[in-house]
Design a binder for these strands. Structure first.
Lengths: 141, 141
DNA sequence: TATTGTTATACTCTATAACTATA
DNA sequence: TATAGTTATAGAGTATAACAATA
């Protein structure tokens, strides 16, 4: 280590920023922000979670999720339904349009990530693994 | 891949956020933000760069650097000097106090990063390498 | 009483444009 | 004319607190 500017925080910040910018660019044609895309993807595989659960999973404030869902619902990509077992909670689900758009977006995302990790080639899988493992120990994963 | 929520962008965003929070906490006693720390570290090893060069290196707006330097100069941690060869530019340098604080902060940072990467142990070096290599291909590193 | 989602508001961070001094 | 740094302002993103519905 030695040189603090090679710190993990520094590298992670920069990598996250550039990776986000690349994803934004890749999704621009679909009029979908990176955050909206990642949220759609989360909803697809976790339609059993409440909005607060999703907020915790994303490490963002619950009020952020409210606005995200507002946007996506207005575009007809997701639906809100009261949960049967606890009518305070909402259950989110993708519409047919939402699923189609997510599929299209996913293709673009994968292309953007391969490009972003071009320099490390196949070791991108190792990068994913290391990040996931490090995060798994953190609270509220 | 398959599951978009395992995308690199998603993992990098979360890892960056948590790593930043951990660093902020580790530096709180010193009344130093993570960004101030990373900037001090950058100045120490790059006192030949202009503020705009530093801004590019950090991938932030030049006006952000102005405010950062304002804060650090007011605390007596860095100095601004007009460059001899081009008097429009500033050259930044750490004061004795700045170097001492940076040393203290670096110790805390290293401890925080070891803790953050506890789950991956010695493979944290590999993580650093992968991030650095992926970033090296990006523009304006 | 506590919790989910919502709203309104305040706060922070960042970007934009205009200015100065140097080139 | 163009560039480095600065300033003031606007904009985006986020957090905080108060509220209604439900538990």
């Amino acid at each position: 280590m030695g040189h603090p500017q090679e710190s993990l925080t520094y590298l992670l910040q920069k990598a996250a920023k550039h990776s986000l910018a690349a994803l934004e660019a890749a999704l621009a044609d679909l009029d979908l922000s990176a955050r909206q895309f990642l949220f759609l993807a989360l909803v697809e595989t976790h339609d059993e979670l409440s909005q607060q659960d999703l907020a915790a999973k994303l490490s963002v404030d619950p009020t952020v999720v409210v606005k995200l869902v507002d946007q996506l619902e207005e575009r007809g990509l997701v639906t809100r339904t009261r949960a049967a077992d606890d009518r305070r909670q909402h259950r989110l689900a993708l519409t047919k349009t939402g699923r189609a758009l997510l599929g299209d977006a996913t293709t673009r995302q994968q292309r953007a990530e391969r490009e972003f990790t071009r320099a490390i080639g196949a070791r991108r899988a190792e990068l994913r693994t290391l990040l996931a493992e490090a995060l798994a120990q953190s609270p509220a994963r």
